[in-house]
């Protein structure tokens, strides 16, 4: 086993309209078992994946939004949301699910997983990755 690589899952699609966001979440959860440095980015319509209050009871689809709250338990604690994408869609961080993780290095304090960053910051974070997968 070589050095740990930085994996980033870049999510740019809205949920339900296509399969990609569900697959992106699944692969992030499966990939967590490989002990790599994993983060996720939510850009463009991808920010809608994190919208609070998703209710699929009348559409008959699988509501997978609840699974995002499991990410913290899988050590996926860096969820970067692009500020410009939120703004362009009339959303604020208050519209998003309050996702958290327990920080093992800080007495298991509960901390927010969602980090709102502007496009320049996100460009720098993307440039630091090793492996980029797109959903």
């Amino acid at each position: 086993m070589g050095a740990i690589k930085k994996f980033m899952y870049i999510n740019r699609t809205a949920p339900y309209g296509s399969i990609y966001s569900l697959e992106g979440l699944e692969v992030a959860l499966i990939g967590a078992a490989f002990d790599q440095d994993v983060s996720m980015a939510f850009v463009d319509d991808g920010v809608f994946q994190l919208k609070k209050g998703q209710d699929t009871s009348k559409s008959g689809m699988k509501n997978f939004s609840l699974a995002y709250s499991a990410l913290g338990d899988y050590d996926i604690t860096k969820l970067y949301v692009e500020k410009e994408s939120l703004q362009a869609r009339g959303l604020t961080v208050e519209d998003l699910m309050p996702l958290t993780y327990e920080d093992q290095d800080d007495d298991y304090q509960e901390k927010p997983s969602i980090r709102v960053v502007d496009s320049e910051q996100l460009a720098d974070i993307i440039a630091e990755q090793d492996v980029l997968l797109n959903y």
Binding site: E82, A123, D124, A127
Partner: peptide, 15 residues
């Protein structure tokens, strides 16, 4: 689709 715009917004200069 906005993919080209997004690529410009989320890439460093010189990429």
């Amino acid at each position: 689709k906005n993919s080209f715009d997004t690529s410009l917004r989320l890439s460093r200069k010189g990429s």
